Each structure stands twice: as C-alpha cells, then as structure tokens.
Amino acid sequence: MPKANVTFEKLGLTVTVPAGTRLIEISEKIGAGITYGCREGECGTCLVCIASGMQNMSERSVLEDRVLQENMAASNQRLACQAQVLGGDISVKA
C-alpha cells in the first residue's frame, strides 16, 4: 500500500501514513490540534493550508468544494476532515 509523508510545520513533525488517510485523523493521532466541528465537511472549521504537496492530495468533493467557496478559501486550503493523502510528501501549516 502506498504511503505518504505528512509534515505539520508548526510541530516540526513528519509522520508516514497509509494513502487514503484523512488529515484530521493524522492530526488527532499526533496531537497537531486541528480544530474541527462536524467531521462531515459542512462547517468549515477544519480549514488548513497545504504548504506543499497539493498534487499528493485527493480531489475536492462537491461538498468540500462548496464549503471552501462559501468560506472564500484560497486555492491551497482544504478541509482536514475531507482531504485524504494519496502518497508522496505533503506539508501542512497547522
């Protein structure tokens, strides 16, 4: 199974996780402290900035895209509860 290396810049910590893991799950396991409300992709609370490696993330779902647009999110922002890592290296400003 493919793996991804995810770096949480504020913690200065890189972890290797299986492809398909959502950012919120990684945050919870390592204590990165990403705040969330619903875990369903509806509230927008878990908005994070992907510093690098966006090409290694899952595509935005219709729901995530709608919430990001409603929150006027930048192109490098994702919802941690929806965004899955696919492999490679990813750096998160969280």
Rank of each mutant, 00 (worst) to 15 (best):
2 P>Q: 15
2 P>R: 12
3 K>E: 11
3 K>V: 14
3 K>Q: 15
3 K>M: 12
4 A>T: 04
5 N>D: 10
6 V>Q: 05
7 T>A: 04
8 F>E: 04
8 F>G: 01
10 K>M: 11
11 L>E: 08
12 G>Q: 06
13 L>C: 07
13 L>D: 06
15 V>A: 05
15 V>H: 05
15 V>T: 11
16 T>Y: 04
20 G>I: 12
20 G>M: 14
21 T>M: 10
22 R>Y: 13
24 I>G: 03
25 E>R: 07
26 I>N: 07
26 I>D: 07
27 S>I: 02
28 E>D: 13
29 K>C: 10
30 I>D: 04
30 I>A: 12
31 G>C: 07
31 G>P: 05
33 G>Q: 07
34 I>H: 03
34 I>C: 02
34 I>A: 04
35 T>W: 06
37 G>S: 13
38 C>G: 09
39 R>C: 11
39 R>W: 11
39 R>N: 13
40 E>H: 08
41 G>E: 09
42 E>Y: 12
44 G>N: 14
46 C>Q: 09
49 C>W: 04
51 A>M: 03
52 S>R: 15
53 G>Y: 07
53 G>E: 05
55 Q>R: 15
57 M>E: 01
57 M>F: 01
57 M>A: 02
60 R>E: 08
60 R>Q: 10
60 R>G: 00
61 S>E: 07
62 V>M: 13
62 V>C: 02
63 L>K: 14
63 L>M: 15
63 L>H: 06
63 L>I: 14
64 E>K: 01
65 D>V: 01
66 R>C: 08
67 V>D: 01
69 Q>T: 14
69 Q>I: 02
70 E>C: 08
71 N>D: 06
72 M>S: 12
72 M>L: 11
74 A>C: 01
75 S>Y: 08
75 S>V: 12
75 S>P: 00
76 N>W: 02
76 N>L: 01
77 Q>E: 10
77 Q>W: 01
78 R>K: 06
78 R>W: 03
78 R>Y: 03
79 L>E: 01
80 A>D: 03
80 A>F: 11
80 A>C: 09
81 C>K: 06
82 Q>P: 08
83 A>D: 04
84 Q>Y: 01
85 V>G: 08
85 V>F: 14
89 D>R: 10
89 D>N: 14
90 I>P: 01
90 I>G: 01
91 S>Y: 00
93 K>Y: 00
94 A>G: 13
94 A>P: 02
